[in-house]
Simulated scan of single mutants.
Amino acid sequence: MPPVRVPIGALDMALVRHTRVNRSAVERRVASLPARRTVKKEWQAAWLLRAIACMDLTTLSGDDTAGNVLRLCAKAHRPLRQDIVDALGIGDLRLTTGAVCVYHQYVATAVDALRGTGIPVAAVSTGFPAGLSPFEQRLAEVRASVAAGAAEIDIVITRGHVLTGNWQALYDEVRAFREACGDAHLKTILGVGELATLTNIARASLVAMMAGSDFIKTSTGKESSNATLPVGLVMTRMIREYGARTGHEVGFKPAGGIRTAKQALDWLILMKEELGDRWLRPHLFRFGASGLLTDVERQLEHYVTGRYAAAYRQPMV
């Protein structure tokens, strides 16, 4: 599928201010998701393969090295062991992850390692994870990552703009980052665990999309609360609302705390229920994940062998 590009729109302050979220209704809807739909056996295996294709395989640790990044890139290119691929009969799929996500320092390393694979490199930017570096420095970081070969830029917003209701400042900030990205796609991290209310999350989602975000993303993975299904429901409803008003398709990326195959299935079900099959593809949906692939591969090995593998058999452990 061709990548989506969302044009920069005008800030509709009236829409932002009139947006409200009913928390109890959100919680009831989320509680109904596992009861309404489940997948088993070969269908579950197929959904887990789709989860792999939608992963941004990520390393964002203080102890990252070039060797770690090269290992991650090799895993992104061949996310399943060959014996599992053969047993599933999916060799012709040429399955890869959706992207590899790294700090700016390792963008060039990842670009070189992934050359010719078609896997894009995403760079976290703008003073990740707090987003409180001087503004010009944050802009320069975006431009530097694009120049180094990053095809996607994950930026963080100034959470204070949301908490004080300064929507114009948030719009101007995200728009400036979008313009600095050039042809690279912009994924805007809201930092939902620090936005206090679901209404704030909904409003921030709308402003980020109006400013030209190609994706909206839940979290940095460094907050105390990261990707949760209630937050995901609110953000996907805002994507649906914005699409109905403008005709533009905005991607969604939950990140932080998604570590099991069961959680991945819950998120895929949410996307199918709220946005439809089109959002079950990597050009409109990504998982921000560092440990998720390990459990997905383990579940797929169980499907083909009937046995659960020991943790040491998983190459990302």
Score class of each variant (00 low, 15 high):
P34K: 14
A31I: 13
P7L: 11
Y106M: 07
L33F: 15
I119V: 12
T126V: 06
R71C: 01
P34M: 13
M13V: 12
N68H: 11
A45L: 03
T97A: 13
G116Y: 02
Q82P: 00
I8H: 06
D63Y: 06
V85D: 00
T58A: 00
L48E: 02
V21K: 01
H77L: 13
W47R: 14
G89L: 15
L48H: 05
R71I: 01
L132E: 10
Q105H: 15
V107W: 05
V100L: 11
S61N: 12
D63A: 11
T58K: 01
M13P: 02
T97M: 10
S133N: 14
S32D: 14
I8S: 06
C101M: 06
L72T: 05
V107N: 12
T38F: 11
T117S: 10
A53Q: 08
G89V: 08
A35Q: 12
R17S: 07
R115W: 15
A35C: 14
L57K: 02
T109K: 13
D83W: 04
W47M: 07
R71S: 00
R36D: 01
A74R: 14
G118F: 04
R17E: 14
G62Q: 02
T58C: 04
W47P: 02
A99G: 13
V124Q: 12
D56A: 04
I90Q: 01
L114G: 03
A25I: 02
P34V: 08
K75C: 12
L80A: 04
V21L: 05
A53S: 05
R78D: 01
G98T: 00
A66P: 02
R23H: 12
A122Y: 05
T96H: 12
A66L: 07
T65N: 05
D63R: 05
A66Q: 08
D83S: 10
A53W: 10
P34C: 06
Q44C: 03
C54V: 06
L80V: 04
K41W: 04
F128T: 01
P129M: 04
G67V: 12
D83K: 08
A74Y: 05
A110I: 15
D83E: 06
D56L: 13
D86G: 09
L132G: 12
F128W: 12
H77G: 06
S24G: 06
M55Y: 03
V85N: 00
M55F: 01
I8Q: 05
S133P: 08
R23S: 15
A113H: 03
D12L: 08
L88R: 13
V107F: 11
A113C: 10
L80P: 00
V16S: 06
A130C: 09
G127F: 10
A76Y: 11
D112L: 15
T38P: 02
A99V: 09
K41Y: 07
S61E: 11
S61D: 08
V102C: 09
R17G: 15
A76M: 15
A25R: 06
T19H: 09
R37D: 03
P134W: 11
